[in-house]
Amino acid sequence: MLARRSFSAPTLAQLRQMPASDALALLADHVKLDPTYLPVKDRHSCRWHASTALGDFEILTTGVKWYDTRACAGGGGAIDLAMHVLGLSFVDAVKRLTAR
């Protein structure tokens, strides 16, 4: 029987607290802040245009939270974002984020 391995709690906590904009910069092949975006609900939100192997994304970020305006999907933390923009499993998303 194979031994089960897991990620450390501090590693997962760090990834869950990483700002979505920082995570997007790590994950995307190309990412650009949209200077024309005017926030409606939260004045701290930003709109990013990002490209990955899965395609192009328009992502709104506020702290750790993110929202894909084209897919009408969102979440919180770098792990969820990696799973979304790269189509990865939880384990592969954590590995990808910790490899950089």
Rank of each mutant, 00 (worst) to 15 (best):
G55H: 07
T69S: 08
A28P: 04
G75S: 09
V64S: 00
A3N: 14
L60D: 00
P35A: 06
S8E: 12
T69G: 02
A73M: 14
Y37R: 00
G77W: 03
L27Y: 00
V40C: 08
T36P: 02
F7D: 10
A93Y: 03
D56T: 09
G76R: 11
L60M: 06
T62W: 05
A9R: 13
A82D: 04
V40Y: 12
T62S: 15
Q14P: 01
L88V: 05
T52K: 01
P35D: 10
A93L: 04
R16V: 03
L24A: 05
A13H: 13
A82W: 00
L26T: 09
A93V: 05
R5P: 06
S45W: 01
I79H: 00
K95A: 13
D22K: 13
M18G: 02
W48D: 02
A71R: 07
L54K: 15
G55E: 06
S45K: 00
I79D: 00
A53V: 07
M18Y: 00
R70P: 06
D34S: 11
L27M: 09
D34G: 09
L2Y: 03
P39G: 05
I79V: 15
R43G: 04
P39W: 02
T98P: 09
L33Q: 13
L15N: 06
G63A: 07
V85D: 02
T98H: 09
E58N: 12
A9D: 13
H44N: 15
L12Y: 02
L54P: 01
A78D: 08
A71E: 12
A20N: 07
H44T: 14
L33T: 12
L60W: 00
A71H: 09
V85R: 00
R96M: 11
C72T: 15
D29G: 12
W66N: 00
S89A: 13
D22I: 11
T69W: 05
T52N: 02
W48I: 09
A25S: 15
A13D: 14
M83Q: 15
L38R: 10
L27A: 04
Y67F: 14
D42C: 05
R16L: 10
F57W: 14
R5W: 10
A9W: 11
T11I: 08
M1T: 12
S89D: 14
R43W: 06
T36V: 07
F7A: 07
G87I: 04
S6K: 09
